[in-house]
Amino acid sequence: MSLFCDTGLAERIEQAEVRLISAGCEAARGRGARGLLLPVAGGVASVAEEGSPLNKVAGLGFAGVPTEKDVEEIELAFGDIPVQVELAHLGDPGIPALLTARGYRLVSFENVLGLALDGGYERVDPAGVEVRRTDEDFESWLDTVVEGFASPDNQGVPSHEEFPREILANAMRDLVAAAGVRRYVALYEGELAGAASCRGDNGVAQLTGAATVPKHRRKGVQTALLSARLADLAAEGCDIAVITTQPGSKSQQNAQRQGFDLLYTRAVLVKPAPETG
């Protein structure tokens, strides 16, 4: 049976995202980066450091519409960093009108898919693939993620974002340290072939990224990484798993083949940083 997403479920998922972003941003501040957090209308505005994937406004739409003053304060706080808002389409419809009137432009969409885990989940082990949870060798794990992301499948809508390795490493270390994100690696016939991460948050299993190195694609690595994380999180009591993908991407196709349903879409709106000089 397909999983239906009402506004209550969407809010629950978005609040898990708020806590993820907030924890990572606070960890950035703890290591001396900017680490600015502003609560806004049930969501949060986060600036970890220049160029970070944690620089965004998340979770809006389920606690009313921000005021003009709220948005202006966020823009002033971001300063010379573009303000990116990731807005669930199930949120308050008054928010897009407010943002576009202030010069925000629609730049992309991302899909949030979900899978019910309340009946547990069985691990799948494709031939030749071994998946392990790891707390060691962060650099090798990160190299695998970066290599996979640098060579995306030419399917679906391409991402509008790209992050330097050093900034991505900082964000992942912060999320592992403060948000409970755990890391996994996949080996194909003994060779490092893929890497992934996830976390549990009040029953929501967040799949926070996965990548396969190009030469090991189409061998079941993504399937193995996905099923290992789902089995572990289901065993720990999570009742729903969520994954965010680019629309029409291979990642979305793989997730739907594993039983995920499209729950809602986030619109990504950006206000460019003010010009100086």
Rank of each mutant, 00 (worst) to 15 (best):
K219I: 05
L76I: 12
G120A: 09
Q258L: 15
P152W: 02
S108M: 10
Q256T: 14
G259N: 11
N170L: 14
C25N: 12
G61W: 01
T100E: 14
A33H: 14
R31H: 08
E147D: 09
E86S: 13
L90E: 08
Q222H: 15
I21N: 02
G43L: 02
I240W: 02
L60C: 02
V124G: 00
V40L: 10
N154D: 12
F109L: 12
Q252T: 00
Q246L: 13
V157S: 05
L225A: 07
D174C: 12
G148I: 02
L233I: 04
R173K: 15
A101H: 11
D201V: 10
K56L: 12
G209T: 09
C238R: 00
P274L: 12
R133C: 06
R266Q: 11
H216K: 06
Y264I: 05
A186S: 09
R165F: 01
V268Q: 03
E275L: 13
R217K: 09
S159L: 09
R266C: 08
L38D: 03
F260T: 01
S52T: 10
R229I: 02
A77G: 11
A273G: 07
G114D: 08
G30A: 15
D6L: 09
Q206H: 09
G277S: 11
V85T: 04
L99P: 00
L207P: 00
Q252K: 04
V146G: 01
E122T: 13
G156N: 08
F62C: 07
I21T: 12
F4R: 15
E50I: 09
E130F: 04
L263E: 01
D118F: 11
E72T: 09
E26N: 07
L115D: 03
E189N: 14
L76Y: 05
H160P: 05
L106C: 06
M172K: 14
V71M: 15
T134M: 05
F149C: 01
R165C: 02
G91Y: 02
A273K: 13
A88M: 00
D143G: 06
N111M: 08
Y121L: 08
N254T: 12
R12H: 12
D135H: 12
P66G: 04
A224I: 05
E73F: 04
P53F: 04
D261R: 05
R132N: 05
G237S: 13
A186I: 03
T223H: 09
A267P: 05
D92H: 13
P158N: 15
L207A: 04
R173L: 07
A41I: 01
F78L: 06
A178I: 03
T144G: 04
Y188D: 06
A235F: 08
E189L: 10
A127E: 13
K219W: 04
N55K: 08
A224P: 01
I167K: 11
P158D: 13
Q84R: 15
F163H: 14
V181F: 02
